[in-house]
Amino acid sequence: MLDCVLGLVYCGDEKCVLCKKDIYDDENICKMCKDNIKICRDSFQIGNYDHEFSCYSSAYYSGAMMELIIKLKYKNSFRSGDIIASYMKDTIYNSNIDFDVLTYVPMTKKSLKKRGYNQSEYLARTLGKYVGKPVICCLTKTKDTKDQIGLSR
């Protein structure tokens, strides 16, 4: 009976978030779409003379990863966000990245009201659960800038 009730609450949609084919695991993405994600193994340094930081990317912005990001950002696909956060978690573990807290890029109140949620905050909170680290809000966005999607190169 419990399974029936849970089946009503949680629809059990075991389909790939991208291609909608049936999947048989808890990853939300099929093997074919997963194989279309190009993992980034390089890092780079930013900073100045006194402080330098290593920066990492989990995957290149192309193919399936680009679709996942677009679905999270513009279609409210939280399953896509869970997949992205999982790749971020893998990068942290595989690169032995040591850190104390996670933060995220803030949005203006106007943008937050328009979109309904902050996708970078969602990723940070999901990733925080995966790696057991606290998420803090330590940045403030003071200028309402144009969306990058509408800008020229």
Results as ranks from 00 to 15, higher is better:
Asn94Gln: 09
Asn94Val: 12
Ser95Tyr: 01
Ser95Cys: 02
Ser95Leu: 01
Ser95Thr: 01
Ser95Ala: 03
Asn96His: 12
Asn96Asp: 13
Asn96Arg: 13
Asn96Val: 05
Asn96Leu: 12
Ile97His: 07
Ile97Met: 08
Ile97Lys: 07
Asp98Leu: 07
Asp98Met: 09
Asp98Arg: 12
Asp98Glu: 12
Asp98Val: 09
Asp98Thr: 13
Phe99Asp: 07
Phe99Trp: 03
Phe99His: 03
Asp100Tyr: 03
Asp100Cys: 12
Asp100Arg: 06
Asp100His: 10
Asp100Thr: 14
Asp100Leu: 14
Val101Tyr: 15
Val101Cys: 09
Leu102Glu: 08
Leu102Asp: 04
Leu102Arg: 02
Leu102Asn: 04
Thr103Ser: 01
Thr103His: 03
Thr103Leu: 00
Thr103Val: 05
Tyr104Ala: 08
Tyr104Gly: 05
Tyr104Glu: 07
Val105Ile: 05
Val105Asn: 08
Val105Gly: 06
Val105Tyr: 02
Val105His: 02
Pro106Ala: 07
Pro106Leu: 05
Pro106Ile: 14
Pro106Thr: 11
Pro106Lys: 02
Pro106Asp: 08
Pro106Gly: 03
Met107Asp: 03
Met107Ser: 05
Met107Ala: 07
Thr108His: 13
Thr108Lys: 09
Thr108Ile: 15
Lys109Ser: 11
Lys109Glu: 10
Lys109Val: 05
Lys109Gln: 11
Lys110Ile: 15
Lys110Ser: 08
Lys110Gly: 01
Lys110Trp: 11
Ser111Thr: 10
Ser111Lys: 13
Ser111Arg: 15
Ser111Gly: 09
Leu112His: 14
Leu112Asp: 14
Leu112Ser: 14
Leu112Gly: 13
Lys113Gln: 13
Lys113Arg: 15
Lys113Phe: 15
Lys113His: 15
Lys113Thr: 13
Lys114Asp: 12
Lys114Asn: 08
Lys114Leu: 05
Lys114Pro: 10
Lys114Ile: 06
Lys114His: 04
Lys114Met: 04
Arg115Val: 11
Arg115Leu: 05
Arg115Phe: 06
Arg115Cys: 04
Arg115Gln: 06
Gly116Ala: 02
Gly116Trp: 05
Gly116Gln: 09
Gly116Arg: 11
Tyr117Ala: 13
Tyr117Ser: 11
Tyr117Asn: 13
Tyr117Thr: 09
Asn118His: 00
Asn118Gln: 00
Ser120Pro: 11
Ser120Phe: 03
Ser120Ala: 08
Glu121Thr: 03
Glu121Ser: 03
Glu121Ile: 01
Glu121Trp: 07
Glu121Asn: 10
Tyr122Gln: 10
Tyr122Leu: 10
Tyr122Ala: 07
Tyr122Ser: 09
Tyr122Asn: 02
Leu123Lys: 01
Leu123Arg: 00
Ala124Phe: 07
Ala124Gln: 03
